[in-house]
Amino acid sequence: MLHNRFGRLAATALAGTMLMGAAACGGSEEPTTTASPGDAATSAAPGGTGPKVGLAYDIGGRGDQSFNDAAAAGLDKAKAELGLAEAKELEAGNGETDAAKEERLRLLAQGGYNPIIAVGFAYSGPLKKVATEFPEVKFAIVDDEAATGPNISNLVFAEHEGSFLVGVAAALKSEKNHVGFVGGVEVPLIKKFEAGFAAGAKAVKSDIKVDVKYLTQPPDFAGFADPAKGKTAAEGMFDAGADVVYHAAGGSGGGVFEAAKAANGKAIGVDSDQAKTAAADLQGVIMTSMLKKVDVAVFDFLKNAAAGAPKAGTTVYDLKAGGVDYSTTGGQVDDIKAKIDEYKQKVISGEITVPKEVG
C-alpha cells in the first residue's frame, strides 16, 4: 500500500537541524524512519567506508510498488555491495513547489551527502540550480535530460520501446480487440509510454481500439499517487469493453489493478515487476509489466561514483542495452512469449522504430 507521508517543508534552519540529527545516527543500526515537517526521511547507516549517498524520491516515495521502489532497489543493492558509509532518503510532498525540492536537495548537499540522486523529471529545474551551488557534489537525475552540467548525470530510458512490447502482449491477449492506457499525468514522458503501447498493440492488430485516460494535468502531479482516480479511470475502460488495461501512473496503478480484478479483466504493470510487488490479492490480474530498470541505472551511477568516475551527461537505457523489458512472472504470457520476443528483436535490430510521440 502507499504510504501517505506528505506535508510542507519547514524553515531551512529547522529542517537542516533535523536532517543532521538523523544523519548522526550512524553505527550499525537498522534503517529507521523519522518524521520531519514535509519530508519522510529514512536514514540508513551501513557503516561502510564508501560514500554518503542522498536520494530524493518523487511523489509516492519508497513503497509505491512502482517507480520509486525501483530506485530504492538500486539503492538497496548499493548498500549491500558498495559499502556505503550512509544513505539518506527523502520524499516529495504532493503539490509542493520547486523551492521545496530545491531545499531538499540543498539540505542533502549541506549534510555532506555526495553523490545525490533525484528521482523523477519534476526535479529538473531545482537540481539544475542546486548543482551549480555545489559544484563539488555529483548529482544524478532520473528521467530528465534538461538539467545539464559538469556534475550532473542524466539517467533516461526508452520507455516507448518497453511499452511497445507490452502493447504487443495486450493485443495478443485481448479477446475483445479493445485495450486501455491509464497515464498518471499528461506530460511528454508519460506520452512516450502511451505512444509505444498503442504502436505495439496496433502492430499486432491494426484495428484494435486503444482507450486513453490521464488522471491529472501538470502542474498537478497527484495523478501519480491517487489509486482512487486510477480505479475510476480503469473501471470506465472495462465498462466500455476493454479487457486489458496498461498503466503508467505510479502509485495510482493499485487502483487500476483493483478495477481489473472486479471486472475479471487483465492489467499491465509498469516500472517494477508488479506481479511481485502489488498487494497479494491483486497480483493475479497482472499479466505482465513493462520493466523500466531504474534500479540498474541507480546502482550503475552509484558504483561509478564510488569508484570516482561518474559519467556526466546522458546515459540511455534502451531495449538493446537491457534498460527496458517485459516481465513473465506468473506465466500468463508464456504462450505468447515467442511472439513478443520476435517483435523485441525487430526493435533491437532497427527493423521496427517505435514512435516516441502519439501520432
Rank of each mutant, 00 (worst) to 15 (best):
M1F: 13
L9C: 12
A15P: 00
A24P: 05
A24K: 12
G27P: 12
S28H: 09
S28Y: 09
E29C: 08
T34A: 12
A40K: 14
A44T: 10
T49R: 13
P51T: 08
K52A: 11
K52Q: 07
V53Q: 00
V53M: 05
G54W: 04
G54Q: 03
D58N: 15
D58A: 15
I59C: 06
G61I: 09
A70G: 06
E81I: 01
A87C: 10
A87R: 01
E89S: 04
L90F: 15
A92D: 08
G93P: 11
T97Q: 09
T97K: 12
D98E: 14
I116C: 08
Y123Q: 05
S124T: 15
T132C: 02
V137F: 00
F139K: 02
A140P: 12
D143N: 11
D144H: 03
E145W: 03
E145V: 15
N154F: 02
E159I: 05
E161T: 11
G162C: 04
G167C: 07
A169T: 10
A170W: 09
A171S: 15
S174C: 06
E175Y: 02
K176Y: 01
G184T: 00
L189T: 01
L189D: 00
A201L: 02
K202N: 05
K209D: 09
L215G: 01
D226H: 05
K231G: 01
A234P: 13
M237G: 11
M237C: 10
M237S: 13
F238R: 10
A240V: 03
V244S: 05
V244M: 02
A248G: 14
G251I: 00
G253R: 00
G253K: 02
G255T: 06
A259R: 11
A262G: 08
N264L: 02
K266S: 14
D273G: 07
G284T: 13
G284M: 04
T288D: 04
D295I: 04
K311Y: 05
K311Q: 13
K311W: 01
A312Q: 08
T315W: 05
Y317E: 11
Y317Q: 10
L319T: 07
K320L: 08
V324C: 08
T328W: 06
D334R: 07
I336V: 15
K337H: 06
D341A: 09
S349V: 00
T353W: 02
K356A: 12
K356G: 08
E357L: 12
V358T: 14
